[in-house]
C-alpha cells in the first residue's frame, strides 16, 4: 500500500475534463499532508498529448493507457484496466469525477476491489490520514460526512465545480507510465452501435441542466427568439408557461408545469412568468431559480433565488451579452 492519491482523469474530445483538474489540485494539497504523491490515470486513444497538462496541476505521475479498444468508453474495458492498475499499485485514495462516466465506472471498480466508494462528493479531506468526504443526500436537503473502513483503497467521485482549481505550473512535467492494455474483445460485453449527438440540439426539458422559460410577459411568439439566443449561449433548453402555450406561442411539449412537464434543472430562468401555482408545481424543485418580471408582486419572486424586477425585453439582451462574455473568458 502506498500513500498515493489517484485521480481518474476523464478526457473527452481531446480535452481533459475540468473536474479532473479540480481533483488533482485538491489531491495535491491532500498529498502534501499525507506525505504521498498524486497520480493521474488517463485512458483513451491518442490521449498522450494530454498527459503533460495533468502534471501542470500537480500530478506527479500519469498512468497512460492508450489503446484502440479504449477509444470509446466501455464499462468492461475501462474497469478491467483500472482495476488491474489499482491492484498492482494499491493507492490509498482514488478520485473520480462525478460525471456520467465516472459514476458508471467507479462502482464497478470499487465492487471488484471490495473498496468503499462515496458518490457525488462536494468536499474531500483527510482524517487521521484517511479519506473523509462530504456529500449531499436527499437532493441536497441533507449533507453527510463519510468515513471509510475495511479496504486498502478508498474511493470517491467528486462533483464538478465543487473544488477550486489551483493555477497550473507549466514547468512541472509528470512522469508518464505507459500501461499495457491486454483486453480480449470478447471480454467487452457491450458494443456501441451508434452515437446520436444532441449537442447543438437542445436537451429534452426534463433532462436539461438549464432551462430558460417564457410566459405571458413575452407578449408574442416572435419574442421567444430572444430566449432562444440566451439559451444558445447557455446550452439551455427553452420552456414555456401554460399561458404562453395556450396563446399558441410555443408547442404543448414545451410546457412546464402541473399539466406539462415537471422539471428540476440546476438553473431555471423564468422570464415574464408570474408564477401561478400550476407553474411552480412543475419547476419548484429546480436547484436555482431566476425570475425576471416587471411585476414585483408576482409570486415567482417568492420562489426565486435571484430576481430582477424590470422589463424583460431590456434585461435579456444585456444578460445574453454578459453570458457570452463569460463563456468567452472561460
Amino acid at each position: 500500500m502506498s500513500n498515493s492519491i489517484w485521480v481518474f482523469a476523464e478526457a473527452k474530445e481531446g480535452k481533459i475534463k475540468k473536474v479532473a483538474l479540480e481533483m488533482i489540485s485538491e489531491a495535491k494539497k491532500m498529498a502534501e499532508k499525507l506525505g504521498g504523491d498524486v497520480s493521474a490515470v488517463l485512458m483513451g486513444q491518442n490521449v498522450e498529448p494530454l498527459a503533460e497538462q495533468l502534471g501542470h496541476y500537480g500530478a506527479n505521475k500519469v498512468y497512460l493507457a492508450d489503446h484502440e479498444v479504449l477509444k470509446d468508453y466501455t464499462t468492461d474495458a475501462y474497469s478491467k484496466v483500472l482495476t488491474e492498475l489499482i491492484k498492482e499499485n494499491e493507492p490509498s485514495i482514488v478520485l473520480y469525477g462525478a460525471t456520467i462516466l465516472g459514476k458508471d465506472l467507479s462502482p464497478r471498480v470499487a465492487a471488484r476491489l471490495e473498496a468503499g466508494l462515496a458518490t457525488d462528493c462536494t468536499g474531500v479531506g483527510l482524517d487521521d490520514g484517511k479519506l473523509t468526504v462530504t456529500r449531499p443526500m436527499f437532493a441536497g436537503k441533507a449533507y453527510t460526512d463519510i468515513s471509510f473502513s475495511g479496504s486498502k483503497t478508498n474511493m470517491a467521485s467528486v462533483r464538478p465545480n465543487a473544488l477550486p482549481v489551483t493555477p497550473p505550473d507549466e514547468s512541472k512535467k509528470p512522469e508518464i507510465i505507459k500501461v499495457d492494455v491486454n483486453i480480449n474483445p470478447d471480454d467487452i460485453r457491450t458494443t456501441i452501435q451508434e452515437f446520436v449527438k444532441t449537442a447543438g440540439e437542445r436537451a429534452d426539458l426534463t433532462e436539461a441542466e438549464i432551462i430558460v422559460s417564457g410566459g405571458r410577459g413575452m407578449k408574442g411568439p416572435e419574442n421567444f427568439q430572444m430566449l432562444e439566443e440566451l439559451a444558445d449561449v447557455l446550452g439551455a433548453t427553452v420552456g414555456a408557461s401554460r399561458a404562453a402555450v395556450d396563446a399558441g406561442w410555443k408547442a404543448v411539449s414545451d410546457q412546464v408545469g402541473q399539466t406539462g412537464k415537471v422539471v428540476s434543472p440546476n438553473l431555471y430562468i423564468a422570464c415574464g412568468i408570474s408564477g401561478a401555482i400550476q407553474h411552480l408545481a412543475g419547476m419548484s424543485t429546480s436547484k436555482f431559480i431566476v425570475a425576471i418580471n416587471k411585476d414585483s408582486d408576482a409570486p415567482i419572486f417568492q420562489k426565486a433565488d435571484y430576481g430582477i424586477v424590470d422589463d424583460l425585453f431590456k434585461v435579456i439582451p444585456v444578460l445574453t451579452e454578459e453570458f457570452k462574455k463569460l463563456k468567452a473568458d472561460s
Partner: peptide
C-alpha cells in the same frame, strides 16, 4: 459489511431568501 459509514448528518446551509438584484 459496509465499506463506508455516515459519521454525521448536517443540514445544508440555509438557502438565503430570494434576492432581488
Amino acid at each position: 459489511g459496509s465499506k463506508t459509514m455516515i459519521t454525521k448528518y448536517t443540514a445544508p446551509p440555509e438557502r438565503a431568501a430570494g434576492k432581488i438584484i
